[in-house]
Every structure is written in C-alpha cells, then in structure tokens.
Design a protein around this nucleic acid. Structure first.
Lengths: 232, 232
DNA sequence: CGAATGGTTGAATTGTTTCAATGTCGGTGG
DNA sequence: CCACCGACATTGAAACAATTCAACCATTCG
C-alpha cells in the first residue's frame, strides 16, 4: 500500500490552516484500513474507540430503531469525517457506518483527540464547524419531513445525492454507487413501493432513468423545480 | 436589576471545570436582557452578533420555510445555550428565537468567542458536547418522523416537554408555559386538527387533561407506553 | 440453472388532511 | 360590568396521499 501522505488531509476544512509539519504529525498517528462492500466500519452502540476520514469509496450511516426499522442518516463521501462520537462527548457510536462499495478510511484513536486538539487549537474550531453543519443538515431534514409530501422529499434526496456523488454520463448524471429503492425509502421515511412508483412516474416524464440499484437524473433542472414545487 | 453573578453559570455543562475567577471574567463580558412574551431574541437569517444563555422563562426556536410553514425546532429552558451560530461557523442565525413567556437572557458578543475559547480551552470541549447533543436530538427526531405515526410522535413530544418543563400539580404534571395545539402540530409535523383529535381521545381515556394553551399529563406511565407502542 | 435480491404495478385499505361549521374562552373597550 | 371580538379548540364529513397486501417480472450471482 502507498505511504500515507499529508496531501490526503491538506484540502479538508478541518485541517485548513495547519502547516505541513503539523499535517505530518497528525498523519503519523493515523492508520488506514480497507472496508469491503457490505462490511461495517463500526456499529451502533459500540465503544467509540476511533474517529475517521473517508479516503475512497462510499458509506451509509444508518440508525436502527428498537423496532428494527432502519433510517439512513447520511452518505459519507471521500474527504469527509465520520464516527466523530468522542468529539460529540459520547462514549459509543450513535449509528452504524456501512460500506456500500469497497472503501478506504483513515482512522485515529479517540484517546489521541484531546492531545491533538491541545496542540492544534484550530482543530476545535474546524470540528465545531463540522458539527454545526451536521446540525443544520439534520434540522433541514426535520423541516422537510414536516412540511413536504413524499414526492418532493424523494426529489430533494436524489438531488442531494447527485450533488455529492454524481458522475456525468451521456444520458445524464448518475449516482456513483449502488442505491436501491429501499435505500431511498430509508432516506425519506417512506416505503420502497412508493419510491418505485415515483421513479417510474418520473421516468415516463423523462426526468430520470432507472435501473437495478441505479438512478440517472436526465433533467436536473426540471427535477429541481419539482422539488421546490415551482410549477413543473 | 440584580448584579450578574458567577453562580448563574456555575452549574452549566459548558462552564463546568472553570474556576471562580474564570467565571467572573466571563460573566463580566455578558449583558442581560429582558424579552417580553411574544418578542423575539433574534430572527432567522439575521447577522449572528451574539450568543445567549437563557436565565428565566421559555423560548421557542423556529424555522420558517420559503413557503411560509413554521417548524418548531426546540424549546429552550433556563440554563441552556441558544443562538450559537458563530460557534457553528455561521454568519447568520438559522432560526428565530421567540419568547413564549416573559424571559431573561444573558448574551455575549460573537466576536468575544474566539478570545474566550483561547483563554479557556475547555469551552471548546463543552461547546462540542452541546453541539453533539443537538445533532443527536435532531437525528432522533428524523428517525421518529421516518418510522412512527402521528399519535406516537405527539406522545413523544409531550413527554419531552413534560420532562423539560413539567410542573407537578394535583391533577398531574402540567407543561409550564402556554402551548397551543398548533404549537404541538408544528413540533410533530402534523395539523392542529389531528393534534386536537388525539388529545381529545387521550382525555377520554384519562391520560391527559386539556385546556386553552394548556396540557396536563395525568398518567405519564401509560402515555409512555403508548409512545413506545408497547401494549397500552 | 435455480435461488435470491431488487423492482414494478394493481387493488384495497387506512391514517391523516382538508374543508367546514360551531363552540368556548379570555381579554378589551364601550 | 358586560358585550363583543379574536384566538384557540372541537368535531363531523369528504377527500386524498401513501401504505399495505399481493402477485409477478427481471437480473444477478453462486
């Protein structure tokens, strides 16, 4: 495997403002690990022994309710932090991180965090920004679920995924990892049946193109208008 | 008005671990302000010039959508931080804070925060804890809205309010500030009609007692079972 | 090739909203 | 002090969006 290099961290918001020497110090403490598709990096309620940065691949972060229902909290894309339970003052992970494709992550021991933060106080600022961003996203989702009906929620979810992980193709922009109707349902609080009907409807109207665990958005602008409920 | 005293901050998680001298320093920079019932402390999208601690009273934090729908993000109870947009790396407040009863808040200038944090690094840790708690709450709510039907969401919301702001009376535990059916609807993503029907139903069964802008929980345990969907 | 996983689509059902009407409480002003 | 107005609440009936139930098809993979 290639040697770990500070360039991996250089353009992450959390590490912005740190010099090369600092980045070298920080990366010297990191370990990297492969995660096979379908494997978990950590599981809900397990001891939060590490925190992570995704280098390669895509993860689902999901919560499972006592009743057994799954909810996808977010998708992690390369360059993002995840598993930051310690920083949140928690002893255990609040959710499970599952690789949806073969992935690679960098990890640091949780107990290293206080020391890192002491040496580089800007890490605390960056972490608060990250946490703040997550709060904002989560509140945005609460607002969405409170005020919008299913079709528009699905439209917003798809557009978010396209933005994060869209790959341009000749028929439109495709979400760059396998995603099932069930997954979309678990992101939007509905059933796979409803998602299937909605996507079929859109396909008829030329907005998207479906496929097994695949979604291609052919007309992002019209989908956006639909999501915002402005005419159509 | 009474002089500001460090004891106001002493038992807040954010300031835990700071000595008397530090608390004196911090409170010396604070200003206090009365907020009349119905007035706002700050409004959504306004410049985040200050951050706050509630000393007395109760606030609603609400988001308004472009379409005009309101969603109550949370209720602020005495001792809690609010308006911490700067710490989240934002220039503007993401929501509006509205006093539901006459209230008193302590405030600090946003520009004082970096200096405070530099002098007392434990503030950063405490703030990350607070932010983490908010993320957890918000995700919990997303899960709830994704997986539970309205009646149980309303039950959970009422139980949370009772826990935060319940006042023991002879007929049960009453929520200690005026709260309408519409408010409960805006917390749970439903309509005031549905909330009214649900509360009426509960009243018939002896679980709660209603009233104008008033909710008294007579049988918290049975309401809890209903919220958890375990028998009834 | 067979089994498993993912997807589609009709039909029936249901929880919730929408529409509408009416009632009640509390404060304000004549 | 009482009348009236506005805000809050209740409750029926109709409409509807989404779920549930069910059957079936397609694709992938071992």
């Amino acid at each position: 495997m290639a040697l770990l290099d500070r360039s991996l961290l250089a353009d992450m918001p959390l590490f912005a403002g740190l010099g090369p020497a600092a980045l070298d110090d920080i990366i010297a403490e990191a370990r990297s690990a492969r995660v096979a598709k379908g494997a978990t990096v950590f599981e809900q309620d397990a001891d939060a022994t590490s925190f992570f940065v995704l280098l390669h691949g895509h993860l689902q972060v999901l919560r499972i309710t006592p009743a057994g229902a799954q909810v996808i909290v977010r998708y992690v894309v390369p360059g993002e932090l995840f598993g930051i339970a310690v920083q949140m003052g928690r002893a255990t992970y609040p959710a499970t991180a599952l690789a949806v494709v073969d992935s690679v992550a960098l990890s640091w021991s949780s107990i290293a965090w206080p020391r890192m933060m002491e040496r580089f106080p800007s890490l605390a600022v960056g972490m608060m920004r990250t946490l703040g961003q997550r709060i904002d996203d989560a509140h945005g989702r609460v607002v969405e679920m409170s005020t919008e009906e299913v079709e528009r929620r699905v439209a917003h979810a798809i557009l978010r995924l396209v933005k994060q992980a869209g790959r341009r193709g000749d028929r439109g922009i495709t979400i760059d990892f396998p995603i099932s109707r069930q997954d979309v349902a678990e992101m939007t609080g509905t059933t796979l049946h409803t998602v299937s009907r909605i996507l079929s409807g859109w396909e008829t109207r030329g907005l998207v193109e479906g496929g097994r665990q695949k979604i291609t958005v052919c007309d992002p602008h019209r989908l956006f208008l639909l999501a915002e409920n402005r005419a159509e």
